[in-house]
Amino acid sequence: MTKRPRYGLYLLVIISVVISFFPIVWLILTSVKTTAGIYAWPPQYWPTPVTFENYWTIITQSPELLRYVLNSFIVGVGCTALTLVFGGLAGYALSRLNLKFAGFLMVGILAVSMFPPVSLLPSLFQNFLQLGLLNTYTGLILAHAGLFLPFTVWMLASYFATLPVEIEEAARMDGMGFLRIFLTIVLPLSWPGFVATGLIVFIFSWNEFPLALVLMTQNAMRTAPVGISLYPGEYAFPWETISTATVIAIIPILIITAIFQKQIVGGLTAGAGK
C-alpha cells in the first residue's frame, strides 16, 4: 500500500482538537487571572500573574458554589444507583425471561424516553410541591431516574443479549432462581456494561438542567449547572467567580470522561445504534 501524504490529515486533526478544547482552555485561563486581568485592556491572552485567588475566594466567601457541586454529586450518584438497580432488573427480564409484552415494553420505553422534559414541568412541579418533594434530594433523584431509566434499560438489555444464555440456563439447572441468577451470574459477568451505562447516566444527571432548575428552588439545594447559571442574577455578572465555579463543576466530568473514554464512547454508540 502506498502512503498518501498526511500533512492535511494532521492539520485537520489539530484544528478540530483546538476548536474542541479552546473554550475550555479559555475558561481555565480566565479562572486563574486576577479580576483586573479579566477586565483589562489591552486584553490579557495569557494570565499575568497566574493566581488562584478566585478559587480561594470561592472557598472562603462563596461556599454555596461548592455546595452546588456536592448536590450534583449526591443526585448523580443516587440517580445512577437507582437506575442501575431498577434498569438492570428490567433489562434482564426484558432480554431474557421471554416476557409476553417484552417487545411492546421495549418500544414503549423507547418512545417515552423522547418526551421533552419541559412538558413534564407543570405537572412535576405541582405534584412535588404537594408531596413535599421540592428541594429534596429524593425528589430530584426520582425525577432523574425516571428520565434516564429508558436509556438504562435499553443499554443493559442489549448488553445482556450479548452474554451466552447457556450460562444462565446452567444456573437454572443448578437450582438458582432468576433473582439469584441476576445477582450472582449476570451482574458479575456484565459489569463492563454496568460501568458504561452508569457513567453515562451520571453524566446525564450531572448535566440535566430543566428539572433541576424547577424542582430545586432553594439556593442551597441547586445542582451545579443551575446554581452557577443563576448565580450572576443576584449581583452584577462576576465573571471571575463564574469561570472559576464552572471549572470546578466540570472537572469531575472531565476526569470521568478522560479515564473512561472507551467505555463511554462504546456505550453511547451502542445505545444509539439500537
Binding site: S20, W206, N207, A224, P225, I228, S229, T246, I253, L254
Partner: peptide
Amino acid sequence: PWALPTAL
C-alpha cells in the same frame, strides 16, 4: 464538548 453540561 458533548460530555460537559450544556448550561456551563
